[in-house]
Nucleic acid binder design. Structure first.
Length: 595
DNA sequence: AAACATCAAC
């Protein structure tokens, strides 16, 4: 084949031809893009040709995830200077989307230093997306000021990006400031600020912002509903969630797969497993998030065997593959059912079959799997063999198991580690003091108490939430502030008497679970969950199920008492505590007494 | 030729 003359006039039709080819096949596959690239080389086109290079970079970056960024960047470096701002933007976008924020930032710097190109309206939204993923609010503020100086601060896309950036760093007040100052607030802005509050433990604020948005006549979309429902799911507010469900129906969003997924999650997290399963069964379009949500939902509710059955179904489904979170659910299910051998098998299959590299979360599950089954020493050895530094959660898992299985030596080891990684966490002191108390080691209990005082550790006050009708009732320990308090306490006394007849003996040792509580003179201080249960006994129809959401872990005494209440009063009681669900029925609990 | 916002976890 004779060489092509190197005149741009002659090459022009060839550039056009290649660009045409890219436009026809561009989005289909990397293979096609490489073919066009090869074609251009065969026809004497140099990749330094700006027009061709620009298109190639664009189509490469636009490939489905993950785009071949190093290939795209290589072409970028060969394009003749000066490089068009569009090409910079495209590459920054690619890095932002693949989570390579460092490369996105350094490309931006390179662009500013080159002096040939200026950022345009698209540059900052892309760059801010990259910075958002770094969750570094200091850096965010720096870039924020650059955006303002650049003159693009009035752009609604830039404002929305900044709003999201602050929300993602957990800085809701800065996020709200950005939102508040926006002269024009579009749906994305509302959704971002609502989501910001929802994700940062302020579901009530999220809901009232929604009401405000509604009053301004702005219609919600799937994003709005997802944020609101997940806020409700997090605090276990079923009645509130049901209200959002009504908005969802009104807005015609019942067929949206994301909103359905999070509705399923809401029901599962409120202990309504049957409803969650029904919802799943009714879904026409199910994605892997739907399957994963159900599996995790079943697992945390103590229905591990069922979770594994669903996983097997998922595996036989075409076009779906379990992800790392699915496996967290499966390993969690195994550990809560004492299926140690199966847990190890799934762990192995995750690597071998699905090529998912285990993360610290998965190792954490394995530690729990061993420790929960009573193999506390093996769990410790497992931690020592892990290919990564154990985090505080892993040590806390071990500590929790040590207190249940009464291994105070290893508990001490775990405690020392936790203290280094995260001092001032009241839950650990409570766990430990609980364990010492159960061994009648009162001087050690005192020691822990003194340490808490010395370190200035404030215990998180326990509270329990219950819903009656559309109202949420909150109870604290020894709470007497409720209008029906007299009735509730009469019920508590009656409850204690009837439980005694069943052989209930209050577990004195666990009085020390609540260190502050000891200080109270009252000999009969009821934990919030007991008060909540008594309140539900007096305010709901006989035999109707009771749901309680507690912010801390249920103590052993309350656990035993509620088990008996479920039998004596013939009530199904679901308690969601800080780490799991307890389904009490006929005197036993789904957690099999390992809480 | 391109832009901002969603879900599942030890």
């Amino acid at each position: 084949m004779p060489p092509f003359p190197e005149t741009s006039v002659l090459l022009l039709p060839m550039v056009e031809k290649c660009v045409n080819l890219l436009q026809t096949y561009g989005f289909s596959s990397l293979k096609k893009l490489k073919q066009v690239h090869a074609f251009s080389i065969r026809h004497g086109l140099s990749i330094s040709n700006a027009e061709l290079g620009k298109h190639l970079v664009f189509y490469l970056v636009s490939l489905p995830s993950p785009p071949p960024m190093s290939y795209a960047h290589k072409i970028f470096t060969k394009i003749e200077k000066p490089i068009n701002v569009f090409v910079y933007n495209t590459l920054i976008r690619g890095y932002a989307e693949t989570g390579d924020s460092v490369s996105a930032l350094s490309l931006y710097r390179e662009m500013r230093v080159s002096g040939f190109v200026e950022p345009d309206t698209h540059t900052y939204p892309f760059l801010l997306k990259a910075v958002t993923k770094m969750a570094d609010s200091r850096l965010g503020e720096t870039i924020h000021s650059i955006v303002i100086r650049s003159g693009f601060g009035s752009l609604i896309f830039a404002q929305n990006s900044l709003l999201h950036l602050y929300a993602n760093c957990g800085d809701v007040s800065s996020a709200y400031k950005v939102f508040d100052k926006m002269p024009v607030k579009d749906l994305v802005a509302w959704n971002s600020v609502i989501n910001g509050f929802a994700e940062n433990g302020k579901p009530n604020e999220a809901l009232s912002l929604y009401t405000e948005m509604d009053s301004k006549g702005i219609k919600p979309d799937g994003f709005t509903i997802v944020s609101l429902l997940s806020a409700c799911a997090k605090i276990g507010a079923l009645a509130l969630g049901k209200r959002v469900h009504v908005y969802m129906i009104k807005a015609g969003l019942t067929r949206n797969v994301h909103t359905k997924n999070v509705l399923l999650d809401l029901y599962a997290r409120c202990g309504r497993v049957e409803e969650a399963k029904t919802l799943f069964g009714e879904m026409v379009e199910k994605n892997s998030v739907s399957w994963t949500s159900l599996i995790v939902g079943l697992a945390v509710n103590g229905f591990g065997k069922e979770a594994i059955e669903i996983f097997k179904e998922m595996e036989s489904e075409k076009g779906l593959s379990p992800c790392e979170i699915t496996f967290v659910g499966i390993l969690y299910a195994c550990s809560h059912c004492g299926m140690v051998k199966e847990g190890f098998e799934y762990f192995k299959r995750m690597r071998d079959e699905y090529e998912i590299e285990p993360r610290i979360e998965h190792f954490g599950c394995m530690v729990d799997l061993l420790a929960r089954a009573g193999q506390v020493k093996e769990a410790y050895e497992y931690i020592m063999r892990m290919p990564m530094q154990p985090n505080v959660v892993v040590w806390r898992t071990l500590l929790g198991a040590c207190t249940v299985h009464g291994d105070s030596d290893l508990a001490e080891v775990a405690r020392v580690q936790i203290l280094q990684l995260e001092p001032n966490h009241s839950g650990d002191y409570v766990l430990l003091s609980n364990m010492y108390a159960s061994e009648q080691r009162w001087s050690d209990v005192q020691k822990i108490r003194r340490q808490m005082l010395r370190d200035g550790v404030r215990k998180v006050p326990g509270h329990s939430l219950v819903e009656v009708g559309n109202r949420v009732h909150e109870f604290l320990i020894g709470d007497k502030s409720h209008p029906q308090s007299d009735e509730i306490y009469a019920k508590l006394r009656e409850m204690t008497e009837r439980l005694r007849l069943e052989g209930y003996v209050p577990r004195i040792s666990n009085v020390y679970v609540d260190v502050e509580e000891e200080e109270k003179e009252d000999a009969l201080v009821y934990h919030s969950e007991k008060i909540a249960v008594a309140f539900m006994l007096v305010s709901t129809p006989e035999r109707s199920p009771i749901r309680v959401v507690k912010n801390l872990r249920v103590c052993a005494d309350c656990h035993l008492a509620i088990k008996l209440v479920s039998k004596v009063y013939d009530r199904e009681i679901v308690v969601r505590d800080r780490s799991r669900f307890h389904h009490f029925k006929d005197g036993s609990c789904s957690c099999q007494d390992y809480w």
